[in-house]
């Protein structure tokens, strides 16, 4: 090895809040990217030692393992109720949930809506990939009309299964939430915007402003049967036409 004589400047490193454990996600999946962004935000805000990760059931069931923070696993859909309990008894903690579309917008609809309506001072990270990844690709509440899934083999039929739920729009019509936004990761510009949105959501919690929801349109190359590149293009061309990007509420 050559001896380095010049002084080196570190320009990129693993966030301190990100644990050195291998992800369980499929190659090309956006979950890992989102996890890294959150860890980066926790570092930047200096809140690692008071953050609690509230995990869901789904592909991200192990989310509490990826952070060097206290963490808890929730029953399917109950993360926002669990976060409520933690935050109410210890308001000094920074509490965030990390939930997929099934967890947040199907089985956990009641817990998710009411935590938002009470204006709990928590941050909700909502991963909308329009599919049930962990259980093998069944229909989600956010599955697009006509989209194939293992439990709608002819594509989602609105007459049988209704329409994709725009959960953020539902939350946005409530009075309490301070920040509701929908973001994506299909190109570098969107990744940077998502980073800023997540940081803002955590910042609002640190400032005790109240409830934030960051919905992220994520991919699932495995269950969509696409390459990661195709999946990104699908999000840009198709998914965003059903789930428009941008801030829905910002009362910060």
């Amino acid at each position: 090895m050559p001896v380095m004589t010049q002084k080196m400047t570190k320009v990129f490193e693993r966030p301190r809040s990100l644990a050195d454990i291998e992800f369980t996600y499929c190659p090309g999946c956006h979950h890992g990217l989102i996890t890294r962004i959150i860890a980066q935000v926790i570092d930047e805000l200096g809140i690692q030692e008071r953050t609690v990760v509230v995990g869901p059931v789904g592909c991200s069931v192990f989310v509490y393992q990826w952070f060097r923070c206290d963490g808890i696993q929730s029953a399917h859909g109950r993360a926002c109720a669990v976060a409520t309990g933690i935050k109410r008894v210890n308001p000094d903690l920074i509490v965030f949930t990390y939930q997929g579309d099934g967890d947040l917008a199907a089985i956990g609809t009641a817990e998710s809506i009411h935590a938002a309506n009470r204006g709990e001072n928590i941050t909700v990270i909502f991963i909308n990939n329009q599919i049930y990844g962990m259980t093998g690709g069944q229909m989600a509440p956010t599955t697009l009309i006509g989209q194939w899934a293992t439990s709608c083999p002819d594509g989602r039929d609105a007459g049988l299964a209704g329409y994709p739920i725009r959960f953020s729009e539902m939350v946005a019509q409530l009075d309490a939430p301070v920040y509701v936004t929908r973001q994506s990761l299909y190109d570098q510009k969107r990744i940077m915007a998502t980073s800023r949105a997540i940081k803002k959501a955590f910042q609002y919690q640190v400032e005790c402003k109240g409830y934030s929801l960051v919905e992220i349109l994520a991919n699932c190359p495995t269950s969509w049967h696409m390459t990661p590149t195709q999946a990104n293009k699908h999000i840009a061309d198709v998914v965003t036409s059903v789930f428009p990007l941008g801030d829905l509420v910002d009362r910060g």
Binding site: V54, V82, A110
Partner: peptide, 26 residues
């Protein structure tokens, strides 16, 4: 102390789960 009228009994018991995990008698 903290009092929350939950959205359901499911919500209530899971708030207890969170509060207990945070170390509180609940």
């Amino acid at each position: 102390g903290v009092f929350v009228q939950a959205e359901s009994e499911i919500g209530a018991i899971n708030m207890c789960y969170g509060a207990s995990a945070a170390g509180a008698r609940t």
